[in-house]
């Protein structure tokens, strides 16, 4: 019951959160003195042509009027049309979302599978050379700019060693999407060649996104494990003669993971969604991050606000899932 209450309260809070987000992004993107009408009309446009197009697109109306009209549309699920592609924003985002999710999920999995065990090992061998090495790597992982890392990985693995492709999601022009997830489509078709190609294309962008996320997880897990390992219940378990393996992986890790799990939601938002904007651009990964960059470069207001709403929604939903997982890891919060 308590879990349902968590879901319910989160969903209620979704509305004012999104409303605030829309108001903020709408205002910022519209008050910047950039003019999408001029870009659409083209450099050769006459003053009359620009004025006529401005009226047609409704940009001559007061900002509050434009905002209310926009909110009205969003309430009906309509994010408006892209000023450039002439298609509904929702359609453009839907077409690109699977690419970002495929990459984001792969990156989170890689970060968890690498970051959590390394954090535990680092804590268990505190102040050993191994611990120092892991800490140096994790601090570097947080400090390295992702666009630089992306380019270095391209140079090493794609250009020098020729192990991975340079960019894109699959060899050649992508096939007509079904689920939109290249790996799932390939498995459904039992097309192992396509699956292998999709995985090879996933490797470098996943690695780029996962490195800072894994670094953050290493630090959190290490801190969590260190805190728990010095607690009384661990002292008691040791006194009872439990094997060290059981103490660490069953009791310490579970207690330490409560903090780590809640951070995964944050990591998804900060490292994966925000990182996707850079990583998708460098690896020519046709997801919503690349869509956002193109929208910003051309002042496509509807594209910018649409992307932000979706990113906000994804962030909120991921955090809801994380809270539910948290309630299983640490049942105390639903008692």
């Amino acid at each position: 019951m308590k879990r349902l209450a968590i879901i319910f309260s989160r969903l209620i809070w979704l509305v004012p959160t999104l409303l605030g987000l829309i108001a903020l992004v709408f205002t910022i993107s519209h008050v910047i003195p950039a003019d999408p009408v001029r870009v659409i009309a083209g450099e050769q446009a006459t003053a009359e042509q620009i004025a006529a197009l401005r009226t047609k697109l409704g940009f001559d109306r007061p900002l509050w009027e434009q905002f209310l009209a926009y909110i009205g549309k969003v309430a009906q699920g309509d994010l408006g049309m892209s000023l450039f592609s002439q298609r509904p924003i929702t359609e453009d985002l839907m077409a690109r979302l699977p690419a970002t999710l495929e990459l984001g999920i792969a990156a989170v999995f890689l970060a968890v599978f690498v970051g959590v065990p390394l954090g535990v090992v680092s804590a268990l061998f505190r102040n050993s050379p191994l611990d120092h090495a892991v800490r140096v790597v994790s601090v570097s992982g947080l400090a390295i700019a992702s666009f630089w890392l992306a380019m270095e990985l391209q140079l090493l693995f794609s250009m020098k060693l020729a192990w991975t492709p340079l960019s894109g999601r699959i060899d050649g022009f992508p096939p007509e999407p079904r689920s939109g997830f290249m790996t799932i489509d390939a498995i459904a078709d039992r097309d192992w060649e396509a699956l292998f190609s999709a995985l090879r294309h996933l490797a470098l962008p996943t690695l780029t996104l996962a490195l800072p996320a894994a670094a953050q997880l290493v630090r959190l897990t290490r801190a969590g494990v260190l805190e728990v390992i010095n607690s009384n219940h661990v002292l008691y378990q040791r006194a009872m003669g439990y094997p060290e393996r059981v103490i660490v992986w069953k009791y310490v890790l579970r207690a330490a993971m409560t903090a780590t799990v809640t951070q995964i939601g944050l990591i998804f938002g900060v490292y994966v969604l925000a990182g996707a904007i850079v990583v998708e651009t460098v690896f020519d990964w046709p997801g919503i991050g690349l869509f956002a960059v193109n929208s910003i470069l051309r002042s496509d207001y509807n594209g910018i606000v649409g992307f932000t709403i979706w990113a906000g929604l994804i962030f909120i939903l991921v955090n809801l899932i994380v809270d539910l997982v948290h309630s299983f890891v640490d049942p105390r919060i639903v008692r």
């Binding site: 391209q154 140079l155 960019s167 460098v282 020519d284 193109n294």
Partner: peptide, 14 residues
């Protein structure tokens, strides 16, 4: 086939 590749470095490496 005309592909959009936004990043200059990726175009050059490609």
């Amino acid at each position: 086939e005309f592909r959009s590749v936004l990043d200059v470095n990726t175009r050059v490496l490609g």
